[in-house]
Amino acid sequence: MISVFGSANMDLVAYAATAPRRGETVTGTAFATVPGGKGANQATAAAKAGASVAFLGAVGDDAFGPVMRGALESAGVDVSRLRVVPGSSGIAHIVVDGEGGNSIIVIPGANGAVKGPTPDDAAVIARSDALLLQLELPMPAVVAAARAAGDVPVVLTPAPVQDLPAELLEVVDVIVPNEHEAAAITGQADPAQALDALLELVPEAVVTLGSQGALYGSRGGERLHVPAVPVRAVDTTAAGDTFVGALCVARAEGRTWEAALRFAATAAALSVQREGATTSMPTRAEIDAAMAG
């Protein structure tokens, strides 16, 4: 089982040929309301990729809360530990341009009320094969969850990027930033150099490079580059979360790092060919078929 301690947001997605610059108004082509949030995204991706997944987080008591709970349940995620708190659910305002790129503003809402894992949450984490964390919850809550993991491998997606306290890094096993996040954390613009710098902080790291694939390294050990699957991107929203969720499923199944990275790259490639966040994520059957083809 994989546990995900993280955020749930309702994504309000506007599509336009060109994203507006400051002070500019553009005419959009479509609008969608899609359940998302980095935590819920990774939980959905992992469940669709074949894992048993428990999601630990919070939604508000507004109209969006039941919709997000229902979406997670429909994907096969255990939401018995998803709390409801007074006020608004988390919201993400997303603009997607004609090339599939996006810009995002996140309003934490109920996510900001999460203070850390409850004793029941900690018990779920302790019997997991991996704990997935992101940074859309308050940092003290993320640190508390990581510390509750004990011997369970902790996988951190350091987004939105921010200063990472030593007390978090000392219990993270794998960090998975994209190339921009890796550069911001390490001060190294070159992804390979950023990977080396990350391995001074944690035992293993994966730097995702979008259309250029991903780099993996372990402290004092191997280095891998796995290329992306070439596709035409329609919407890159949640491609990184799809990659992380699928990667952790593959590793939990005992696949080598190279095989796991290829599995994750295939899942991400399938997701960017569809619109939306959780709605774009492929099933295990789709990933297996794409890899076989």
Score class of each variant (00 low, 15 high):
residue 257 W to N: 02
residue 182 A to S: 13
residue 228 A to P: 03
residue 182 A to G: 06
residue 276 G to I: 00
residue 255 R to K: 13
residue 174 V to K: 02
residue 270 L to Y: 02
residue 200 E to H: 13
residue 190 D to V: 06
residue 258 E to Q: 15
residue 260 A to N: 05
residue 249 V to W: 01
residue 263 F to Q: 02
residue 250 A to T: 03
residue 258 E to P: 04
residue 183 A to S: 14
residue 205 A to R: 12
residue 260 A to W: 01
residue 159 A to N: 10
residue 273 Q to S: 08
residue 185 I to F: 10
residue 168 L to I: 05
residue 150 G to T: 06
residue 176 V to F: 00
residue 214 A to P: 14
residue 221 G to Y: 09
residue 232 R to S: 15
residue 268 A to V: 02
residue 230 P to Y: 05
residue 265 A to Y: 00
residue 245 G to D: 06
residue 268 A to L: 06
residue 276 G to P: 00
residue 256 T to N: 01
residue 165 P to D: 05
residue 275 E to Y: 07
residue 232 R to D: 14
residue 213 G to K: 05
residue 224 L to Y: 07
residue 165 P to T: 12
residue 178 N to L: 06
residue 220 G to S: 05
residue 178 N to E: 01
residue 247 L to K: 04
residue 286 E to K: 00
residue 188 Q to T: 00
residue 158 P to G: 11
residue 254 G to T: 09
residue 274 R to A: 04
residue 164 L to A: 08
residue 191 P to S: 04
residue 163 D to E: 13
residue 249 V to H: 02
residue 280 S to R: 02
residue 211 S to E: 15
residue 254 G to Q: 08
residue 215 L to M: 04
residue 258 E to Y: 01
residue 222 E to Q: 14
residue 277 A to W: 01
residue 170 E to K: 14
residue 252 A to L: 02
residue 185 I to H: 07
residue 220 G to L: 13
residue 156 L to Q: 05
residue 237 T to Q: 02
residue 221 G to E: 13
residue 183 A to I: 01
residue 161 V to L: 13
residue 250 A to G: 15
residue 161 V to M: 11
residue 219 R to D: 03
residue 214 A to G: 08
residue 164 L to M: 09
residue 215 L to E: 08
residue 205 A to F: 10
residue 162 Q to H: 06
residue 275 E to S: 14
residue 226 V to Q: 07
residue 196 D to I: 06
residue 157 T to V: 14
residue 209 L to K: 08
residue 234 V to N: 03
residue 255 R to W: 12
residue 221 G to N: 10
residue 151 D to G: 08
residue 163 D to W: 03
residue 197 A to M: 11
residue 250 A to M: 04
residue 234 V to Q: 04
residue 197 A to I: 11
residue 235 D to P: 09
residue 215 L to R: 03
residue 231 V to L: 13
residue 243 F to Y: 15
residue 207 V to H: 13
residue 267 A to R: 00
